[in-house]
């Protein structure tokens, strides 16, 4: 029974490796962000004011955990599109007539896509280790687990939305509309503590904000959120993330069970 889940993980990974242009594009995109955006700002934000703002971190060390998290978020959310491709190219029917529970095949698919987006984040992070010495390499195992959970949650969100849609264009529109504000508000690129109050409230609604802060806490040792909101400790953030991801996984399973061939 579990075999059908493993085989879907295998399939998603195989597809990822096969799509060489996608892999290259991903790595290139990561490098561009880090170098042109990260290094650019790192050289701009220097001196005592910046140091106070980032609590003694250089900007790259502040940015890297954030970009690691948002890149996982973006890749996994977008990953839901593969459900629509499968609808269009017919592979979905092959899965639907197979004598295996749909919950397992979709779970396998979510795990496979989640792994792909964590790998994507890791590529970026390994570049980061070369650029700054503030990152704690011992945190790697724990942030991989957190990253995987974030990826599973957002892949599920993508799958849930994709299950209701027919065209990739519609899906891309929704992803585009949600991705940009979520990324900008996540606190990945600037500390939220100085943002207007309403913006902070909007950011706290989005689960990605917790993920960014939690991963930053483990990689550089500072939680920027808990200093503003005392109740948002890393433990609470982790708990919130787990709950949200589990809920999203269940929603994805339910939505996928309901998806039909036209």
């Amino acid at each position: 029974m579990m075999e059908s889940m493993y085989i879907m993980i295998y399939r998603q990974l195989k597809r990822f490796i096969r799509a060489k242009s996608r892999v290259v594009g991903m790595i290139l995109n990561n490098i561009l962000w880090l170098v042109f955006f990260g290094l650019g700002w790192a050289y701009t934000l220097r001196g005592p004011i910046a140091s106070a703002l980032f609590r003694g971190l250089d900007y790259l060390a502040f940015l890297l955990p954030g970009i690691f998290t948002t890149s996982i978020f973006q890749a996994s959310f977008m990953g839901g599109i593969s459900v629509i491709w499968d609808k269009q190219f017919g592979f979905l029917k092959e899965v639907l007539v197979a004598p295996t529970p749909r919950s397992l095949t979709i779970l396998g698919r979510a795990i496979g896509d989640a792994l792909v987006s964590v790998v994507n984040g890791l590529i970026m992070l390994s570049l980061g280790f070369m650029l700054t010495s503030h990152l704690n390499p011992l945190a790697l195992p724990i942030i991989l687990v957190i990253g995987l959970m974030v990826a599973l949650g957002f892949t599920s969100m993508g799958i849930a939305i994709a299950s209701t849609m027919r065209s990739p264009e519609g899906f891309q529109l929704i992803v585009g509309l949600l991705t940009l504000p979520t990324t900008l508000l996540s606190g990945a690129m600037f500390p939220l503590s100085n943002a207007p109050y309403w913006m902070q409230l909007a950011a706290l609604v989005l689960p990605l904000t917790y993920a960014v802060d939690l991963i930053r806490f483990h990689l550089v040792g500072i939680s920027f959120l808990s200093s503003v909101y005392w109740w948002l400790t890393p433990e609470i953030e982790l708990l919130l993330l787990v709950i949200i991801s589990v809920i999203l996984i269940f929603i994805a399973i339910e939505m996928f069970k309901r998806t039909t061939i036209e």
Binding site: M1, E3, S4, Y6, I7, Y10, R11, K14, R15, R18, A19, F89, G90, F91, L92, K93, E94, V95, A98, P99, T100, T105
Partner: peptide, 20 residues
């Protein structure tokens, strides 16, 4: 209803696994 990005063998392998 095949997966275009996989080989013929892989398509059959996945099918076999889905059917236990």
């Amino acid at each position: 209803s095949l997966d275009d990005n996989l080989t013929g063998y892989e398509n059959l392998y996945i099918h076999g696994k889905l059917y236990g």
